[in-house]
Amino acid sequence: MKRRAVRRPLTDAGLVAISLLDAWFQGSFDTRFNIACVALTSCALLLRRRAPLPAFVLTVPSVLTSSAVAGSLIAIYALAARTRSRPLLAACAAVFAACYILPWPAPKIGPILALSDVPDLAYGLGLAAAPALFGQLVQARRDLAARLGEITEVREHEQFLAAQSVLAKERAQLAREMHDVVSHQVSLIAVRAGALQVSTLDPDAKDAATTIRRLSVQTLDELRHMVSVLRTSGSPPTELTPQPTLAQLHTLVAGSGIEADLHVDLDGDLPPPVQRAIYRTVQEALTNARKHAPGSSTRVEVRHRDGTVRTTVTNTAPTRPALPLPSAHHGLIGLRQRAELLGGALESGPTPDRGYHLTLEIPIRPRR
């Protein structure tokens, strides 16, 4: 900014000096009227930035009355570098050429213009066209630089959004895995510790079970807060590897810590995304049954009928009070989102016998 503040006055002084030198070389200081026109032209150049068109108009008398044209050409360049009206620019060039060939003062007898003035007219048009084209080139370069700056900003913004999108997906994916895997295991530890705390008669074992259960509950609570923070991104997660398959369902049910039966009736292998969805659904249902319906029995059914895989997890009514384990209430939401991504649906709700059911239906071929 400081350099520009110093450079502008120096540029103005230089252009005014060029205009005065041109008038001096052309002998335009012979009369008072010509001196006034030259002074008017030189002063007009100081207005070329704020008012380029009036500045050009003020330089026209000097072109008409003398051969000093440098000031007017500078004004044409300033106008061309700022205006976007090409007809206006062409009209100014025509006015310059006309004033350049018109005699001053006009003859009292005979025509003002003759056929021999055509070359002079062409020369005047070419003389005016040079700064006009150069000014338009400078304007185009300025516009191109501004457009490139905008494109650069847009690209940087797109890269920022892409990075944020990737980060959001990773955060949501991490939240899903933490809820599906870590919370499942910690809640199982808490349930087993609670059962040991009630059943054992050894004081040391009872204290250890109490400590384990307390720490498990605290860990679940911290996981709940972490999952809530990670889910603020709101983006659908992508899958991590390795991922569970239906071959691991028996291990999952057997290690759930509750009484559960598994029945699988499938025709052939299912796509990996469908297998993962079924596994996570059964895992979430068993976790909820263990947390909210202690003492209940659970039945897990996975069947393939008419191009649709139906997974149903049903538990009976609880026979003991539920442990006060913390919950983020994101499990069913995540399962429903996973099902919708696969074109399926998830339903859940209480049963008439005070139990609970969770049903997942996923088509294994595209719907038509």
Rank of each mutant, 00 (worst) to 15 (best):
R299K: 14
I278E: 06
G71K: 01
A328C: 15
R147Q: 08
G234T: 06
E347C: 04
S216A: 15
A36V: 06
L144Y: 06
L89N: 08
A39T: 03
R368A: 14
V313H: 03
R86Y: 07
R338C: 03
R320K: 11
P271V: 03
P52C: 04
L58Q: 03
R354H: 06
I109M: 10
L64R: 14
A70E: 10
G126Q: 12
L249R: 11
T287Q: 05
Y123D: 02
L53Y: 09
T210Y: 12
K169M: 12
V60M: 12
Y123C: 05
A317N: 04
R192M: 03
G295C: 03
V282S: 02
G71V: 05
V282R: 11
S72Y: 02
D204G: 04
A322M: 00
G110A: 03
L40Q: 08
L144W: 00
I333F: 14
P321K: 14
D202F: 15
I109A: 04
Y77L: 12
Q275T: 10
A106E: 05
L79C: 00
F33L: 14
K2N: 03
R171F: 05
T200V: 08
C37E: 06
Q164D: 15
C92Y: 03
I101K: 03
G295N: 08
L230D: 07
A78D: 00
T359S: 15
L230C: 04
V217N: 11
L266E: 02
L148C: 01
R192N: 08
L230V: 09
G268R: 14
S116N: 12
A162W: 01
D180C: 09
G149D: 04
I333L: 15
S256V: 06
E177N: 00
V198D: 09
E158H: 11
P111C: 08
R305G: 02
V16E: 12
G71I: 02
P119E: 03
F25Y: 05
S216G: 15
R3Q: 15
P324S: 13
F56R: 06
A23T: 07
S199K: 03
T281L: 01
S85A: 02
L246G: 05
S228M: 14
D265C: 10
S228T: 11
